[in-house]
Amino acid sequence: MINSFPSVKRRRQTNQAPGPKEEVRANVKNFELQKNDKYYAWLFLGPSFLVLGIFVFYPMLRTLYLSLFLTDSFGRPTVFVGLQNYLNLLTSKVYMASIQATGVYVIGVTAFTIICGLLLAAVANQKIRGIEFFRTIFTATMGVSVSVSAIFWLFMFNPSIGVLNQIALFLHLPTVNWLTNPHWAMVSVITTSVWMHLGFTFLIFFGALQSVPKTLYDAADVSGASSRYQFFHITLPMISPTFFFVAVITMISSFKSFGLIDLMTAGGPTNATNLLVYRIYKDAFVDGNYAVASTESIVLAIIIAIITFIQFKLLAKRVNY
C-alpha cells in the first residue's frame, strides 16, 4: 500500500531546521518536483488521462481521420480522399439548407424560450392569490421526457384528428399540415422544443427574479421610474447573467435536439427540419456512411466552437457587473 509521501515528510523535517534563512531555502528547494513526486503525479493523473484518452481524444482523432477517407459498407476507411469530403459537404446545397434550418431552429428555440420563460417568470413573480399553483404548473414540463412530449404534440398536430386542426375546423379556419408542410414543420418542432425547455427556463428566471433585491425597486419607485422602465432598466440588467446562462444552455441544448426531431419529423419534410446533429445520425447509422458523418461532425464541432467563442466575447462583456 502507499506509505505516505516521503518527500512531504522530508519537507516537514527541513522546516524544523534552525534559523529562518535556512528554512526559506529549504522550502524553495522542495518546491521543485522531486523524483518521487513525479511518480505520484503520474499515478494520480494517469487514470484521468487514460479515461480521457479512450473516451475523448481517441474518438476525436478517429473522427478526424475518418473524415479524410471514403468508408466502405462496413465503415472501414478504404480510399484516402484528403479534404474531398469537406469540399463536397460545403458545396452541397442540401447541407447548406441543413445549416440554415439549424440556425432558424436554434435561434427560434432560444429566442422564444427566453421570451416565454421570462414572461411566465414575471407573471409568477407577482403577488397574486393562488400564484403558487401556477408556479408549479409552469415548471411541470421539466418532468416530461422528450418522447412523451413528442407524442403529446404529435397528437395535437395530427392533420385529420389532431386538436389543433379540429379547433381550426370548428372556427372555420383553414387547416394546417403541421408536420408535413416544410414551413409549418419548422414552426411545429420549434413550438414543441420551446414547450419542453420552458419549465427549466421558467424556474431559472423565476429564481433570478426572486433574487433581485426588493430595495432596488423601492428606490426606483421613489426616484420616479415606471414599472416598464424598471423592467428594462433594473430587472433585465440584474438578471443578465441568468439571461446569458439560459441563452447558452438553450442554444447548446437545441443544437443537440435529436430525439424530438427523430420522433416528430425524422428530418422531413423535404429536409426542412434535418438539423445538423440529426443529419449526422442519419448519415452514420441509417445510411452507414461514416466518412460523411465524420466530416459533418468535424464541421459541426467547428461551428459550435465559433458560436461559443462569439457568445462569450459578445455577451460576457455585457453581463459583467
Binding site: 392533420p159 399540415n177 408536420l179 408535413t180 420522433l263 419529423t265 425524422a266 422531413g268 419534410p269
Partner: peptide, 12 residues
C-alpha cells in the same frame, strides 16, 4: 391528404 414520412405518417 399528405401525412408526410416516417413512423408517425403511417400511424397517422
Amino acid at each position: 391528404i399528405n401525412f408526410g414520412s416516417g413512423g408517425n405518417a403511417s400511424a397517422n
